[in-house]
Design a binder for these strands. Structure first.
Lengths: 352, 352
DNA sequence: TTGAAAGCGCTAACAC
DNA sequence: GTGTTAGCGCTTTCAA
């Protein structure tokens, strides 16, 4: 084990307190003393023991980011921003992968990481209001990408339903009347899927178009392979859709691949739209029309919210008066509809 | 702050030691006592304070994964496996993004995370043997994806140069004689770039093909946008290449997009190959020929190596005898050449 | 401006 | 089987 404050103090011929003062950048240290201490610090290559510091301070400077899977581009991009924003405020981020499994999500809520973390940013897939209310762990929590209205927690999310409706309206405005949806889920607590489906149905209804269940296959997951498989099914039907709205970009890219492999031209034979605006879709051929949530804003807001709840920054700031923080904050993040080649025509590369 | 062992002990009418025994699952506790303790534990919703435990045990159960950027699919996929493998061994993973910046990489090596972590898995971009040797932080370290031969550290990597040579040979075997390379870098310590370039040149030389600098533009980064821009430059030249070997899949996908936008058919007019085998390339049109490193194996091996160095698992295992661990371990990971549509023809979707 | 010492919550050596 | 207690390294109150 490395040198401790005591070792440094002994070497510098001062007390532990003085060394601590120097290490923590307190004022009121004679230049002479400071110099001595710094010399000893350097000679012993002193590194503070964070466990001890944390124990003493009652905080760790670490927050957890819990999400379904790091290798889904949307989450990878989001994580990037979360880690950046956290780093700016002195926080270190630790990652928990839930794979969207209800069990693991529940564990996350109950605090597997125990006192290791000062706060939690959580992007749930299946967890609902009840689980949230049943939570006993008191670690500050901010929910991401889910809008559980009137839930007991802070959260930041876009209006999924509205965005889905607008995207569907876009497809309708292009003259399509048979519009498929890829991404519906059986799981009654798959919030995102339900919201996006609701938006899709809303748009259809508003346009006087029928809701055809055959055009809305159910998917277990949101990966490229699922999109590809479901698109195959849709194309094989008697009346294939003229357009397909996929509930995320990964599904859309899979669907796109299937369509192109089948010799269809996109968007001429079938239009494809996605959701998330991952970088992939800006370089696919054709480029992908999508809903673009402001990921950086979402990440930043989540970190700020958490920061406010915890009070002070990761490097041992003091706890702010809890009273100053409003009980529950709901932030609605912005999004944009980005129309690109996969629905608009093959003329240009708009939006990217 | 939550309940401590002392509180639980008081409530259960036993000593702290007994509670500790129960919490840590030691044997030799009367069923009766155990029951009492468990009751108190539940009533107080006891959660061990990890800072205290860590301080005491001299370890934290946390390892850091330092990599350039989480939103590059290769790293996202790798991280997924690292986190999985770590979780299986009781470790929690914290992420450090370096953006490939020399400064930040140096900080990582010197241990910004101080005593917060028990070990470090590091995927460097610019750091070289000197920096590695100059390292004073004694946290166990495993290097990833870089083969700094005879370096002072454990590492696991594929043979970049050989893989690059084989890919170039593949392109040559297709009859191409003007083969571009996208991914060379000026930075003398950009190890990966140099190794892959060396492999490329080796193959050319072996085939008696000239090395033409104009076909090897330099890139600052390895993103899709860079690949797209560089491809534009190559295509604009007097004698555009018949095939392009990109040093990663992101560059390749960018290059692909440029080629298709320009109205070229791939691979007929120009073949494109990548490196990394990210999922993207399995669903692009055309699908992407690439070098596929065994990411899961790499991640798993890195975690195992680290585990061995640290000794015992994340949840308080004992430190193993240091002597049992060999000084420096170099593991060469497997890779496969995956030929897909972007070089092979448009007949089928091989390899995916 | 610096020092002495208590104590954060936990584990483990040692006693009983 | 269970209890007592020292001490991990640090911060911080209180004194000097």
């Amino acid at each position: 084990m490395g040198a401790s404050l005591k070792d440094v103090a002994a070497r510098a011929g001062v007390s532990v307190k003085t060394v601590s003062n120097v290490v923590n950048g307190y004022t009121y240290v004679t230049p002479h003393t400071r110099e001595k201490v710094e010399k000893a610090l350097a000679e012993l290559d002193y590194r503070p023991n964070l466990s001890a510091r944390n124990l003493r301070r009652g905080r760790t400077g670490v927050i957890a980011l819990a999400l379904p899977e790091l290798d889904a581009p949307y989450f990878a991009e989001l994580s990037r921003f979360v880690i950046e924003a956290a780093a700016e405020r002195g926080w270190t981020v630790l990652i928990d992968q839930t794979d969207g499994l209800a069990d693991r999500e529940r564990q996350v809520l109950q605090g597997i990481r125990e006192q290791l973390i000062d706060g939690l940013i959580f992007s749930p897939v299946t967890v609902g209001r009840e689980e949230l209310s049943a939570r006993t762990d008191s670690t500050p929590l901010v929910l991401l990408g889910e809008r559980i209205l009137d839930g007991p927690t802070h959260h930041v999310a876009i209006d999924n339903q509205r965005a889905a409706r607008e995207m569907t309206e876009h497809l309708i405005s292009l003259g399509h009347t048979r519009i498929g949806a890829i991404g519906a889920q059986d799981n009654p607590s798959a919030n995102t899927a339900h919201l996006r489906l609701a938006g899709y149905r809303q748009a259809l209804a508003a346009a006087g178009l029928p809701y055809d269940e055959r055009l809305v296959p159910v998917t277990p997951a949101y990966h490229r392979a699922d999109g590809a498989a479901l698109m195959r099914r849709l194309l094989a039907s008697d009346e294939p859709p003229q357009a397909v709205f996929c509930f995320n970009d990964l599904l859309a890219l899979g669907a796109l691949r299937t369509a192109l492999s089948a010799g269809l031209r996109v968007p001429r034979d079938v239009a494809v739209a996605g959701f998330d605006d991952i970088e992939d879709g800006r370089y696919s051929t054709p480029t992908l029309t999508t809903v673009s949530p402001d990921k950086e804003r979402i990440a930043r807001t989540a970190v700020e919210l958490l920061d406010a709840r915890i009070g002070g920054n990761g490097r041992g700031g003091r706890r702010a008066a809890e009273a100053a923080v409003p009980e529950v904050t709901e932030v609605e993040a912005e999004y944009r509809l980005v129309v690109r080649e996969s629905t608009a025509g093959t003329a240009g590369t708009s939006g990217a």
